[in-house]
């Protein structure tokens, strides 16, 4: 089923992607085309088929709960676009009251 522009706006918000002029039409058209192909999955009866999330044989790999070296603070911050006093700097998170 084709995507409406409202749906595109909703999904873009969920995906944290801002929309520029032309984006709504672009995504609506392109995603609808891809979903039209994907809709063939509905032809298959999968009522009794379990889902496969991953194909490996291993499950719940555990390790001893012992400390081991991690990144230093300097390493962790080295790629930050903005860091202040050992913290990542971001725009304000809360609105002013």
């Amino acid at each position: 089923m084709p995507l409406s522009k409202d749906e595109v706006r909703h999904v873009a918000m969920l995906a944290r992607l801002s929309l520029e002029p032309g984006d709504e039409e672009f995504y609506a058209e392109q995603l609808s085309g891809i979903l039209a192909h994907i809709d063939r999955l509905q032809q298959l009866d999968t009522e009794s088929i379990p889902p496969t999330a991953q194909v490996v044989e291993v499950a719940n790999t555990l390790r001893e709960d012992v400390p081991r070296p991690g990144l230093t603070q300097a390493d962790a911050l080295a790629n930050a676009p903005a860091a202040v006093d050992g913290f990542f700097r971001v725009p304000s998170i809360q609105e002013e009251a």
Binding site: L3, L35, L44
Partner: peptide
């Protein structure tokens, strides 16, 4: 395009129709 598609497939109301369905087809 893929982030939008994936977000849509996982979003509320569509998860069973798309993501869960695809995982079952993966089993097949």
């Amino acid at each position: 395009r893929r982030v939008m598609l994936g977000t849509y497939a996982l979003s509320s109301g569509y998860y069973d129709a798309y993501y869960l369905k695809a995982q079952k087809v993966r089993t097949l």
